[in-house]
Structures are given as structure tokens and as C-alpha cells.
Design a binder for these strands. Sequence first.
DNA 1: CGATAACGATTACGAGTGTAGTCGGAGACG
DNA 2: CGTCTCCGACTACACTCGTAATCGTTATCG
Lengths: 122, 122
Amino acid sequence: MTERISEAELAVMEVLWAQSPLTALDVAERIGPVRGWSDRTVKTMLGRLMAKGVILHEEDGRRYLYRPTVARDAYVARESRRLVDRLFGGRAAPLVAHLAEGDGLSPEDIAELEALLKELKS
Amino acid sequence: MTERISEAELAVMEVLWAQSPLTALDVAERIGPVRGWSDRTVKTMLGRLMAKGVILHEEDGRRYLYRPTVARDAYVARESRRLVDRLFGGRAAPLVAHLAEGDGLSPEDIAELEALLKELKS
DNA sequence: CGATAACGATTACGAGTGTAGTCGGAGACG
DNA sequence: CGTCTCCGACTACACTCGTAATCGTTATCG
């Protein structure tokens, strides 16, 4: 049901996932420095995210407070699945294998994965 | 260096990764039925992929034979890394955890991952 | 040799994206 | 009360993507 979130929009979502509700300017302050966006741009993103239904706003005097309607976890799960489906025929193991190649796995990752697998088998 | 490949373009790449070199019509025959594309559309994709430098063509009489310049493995590794970086701060373990949640891991996946981890530790 | 068919090259066009600018109304300030 | 300012709503514009259609040239077939 939830529509796709573009890369730039995701930056706004990350801010709101980190803390919400926030005003448009709050969001802009947290993003502007990092991405070099004007506050207008942030406002546009908020508008588009509203249109996509992934955030909502509540009135607060003469301005709005924005908050996500979609949990980060849910979004992340969907995107992960998309990638795995598109590139690996839905199988997770090859993905991990690929990450392992380019030195993508730290020792902590490996330990964490082992623990995870142990749990899954039980 | 390599530019991004869009979703529709990826379908063309998959065909060429499966077999190459191929003519435009060869590609269209392999894709058209599945995606419902006209051969014109396939030609457009080939042109854009050429512009992006991820395929090249060799002349074969009055037509071209196309082949990838980028290995599927390299592409897949880059895209996987992008996702992991964007959504998981570069850590692979949380990704696998997310996939595991939605029943995303088959028993074979789990077995395969175990074997992989064993190998990585050695 | 003239018509036709097969190709590649160029162009089209609406939706989405990145990145803003402008307009209009409601408070704030003098 | 008139003016300035802050905010959201609407508009802009170039670029990418998905999905083709048209143009020009060259080989081919009768």
C-alpha cells in the first residue's frame, strides 16, 4: 500500500524517525547543513511525503508538526526484500556472500550473524 | 564510476548477463513476452545503457551485437552495499535480521549462511 | 531499378525527482 | 491601522524513467 520514498525524501524521513513531531523548520535545520538544502526544498519534500501518506501533520497554532505514519522498521524491511528479490531471486544467503566478499563483514557482524542463526534454528 | 542502472534497464542487463552478445531483437524476444515491451522500448534501453557505458556494441554487418561491460557480480555487490549503507549504517547483520523477520529466510538459506560463516571464520 | 523492409538514430511525452521560487493570508511590530 | 514577516500552498523547471513513434539509410526482393 505504502508508496515508494525517493532518496531525497528518505533524508527527511530519517530526521522524523529520529525525532518527531517536528516543524518544517526543525527538519530543515537538521538537514540543511548536511545536504545543503534550502528550507523550501525541505518543505517540498514534506509536501510530497504527505501526498504519499507516509507522514501526517497536526496543527500547532499557525504551523504544522509532522510525524511519520510508517515505522522505519517496516520501510527498511520492505526495501530489503525488494533488493533481495530483484538481485538474488529472494534468497538472502547470496546477498551476505556478496557483502562478505568486499570486506563488507566485520568480525562483529559475523558474531552477530552467528547468534542470529542460532536463534533462528531453535 | 559506473552510473546507476534503472529498474527497466536492469531487465535488459539481466538478459545480456544471461547470454551475450545479442542483437537488439534477440534481447527484445527474450524480454517482450515477460514485460510486454515493444522492441522500440528495448532499443531505447539499449541506447541508454550504452550512454551509461555499461554495455557496448560491436558491429555485425548492418546491425549491432550488444554485450555488458560490467559484470553482474560487480553490479550486485555495489547495489547491496548501497542498500546496507543507506539503511543499516553499513552493517550486514541487521539486514539479515530484518529478512529473517518476515519469514524471509528459508531453511536452505539458514544452512547456507552457516556454511558461509564457518568459512569466513577460518 | 524501384518498392519494401530492417536497423539504428532521433524525438516524444507524461510521471517522478531534485531543487527551489512565488503568492496569499495571518500575526507581530511600530 | 498600516507594514513587515512568517508560514503553508502552489508553481517552476531541468533531468530521469518508462514507454514508445518517427526519420533516414541501407540492404533486399521482385
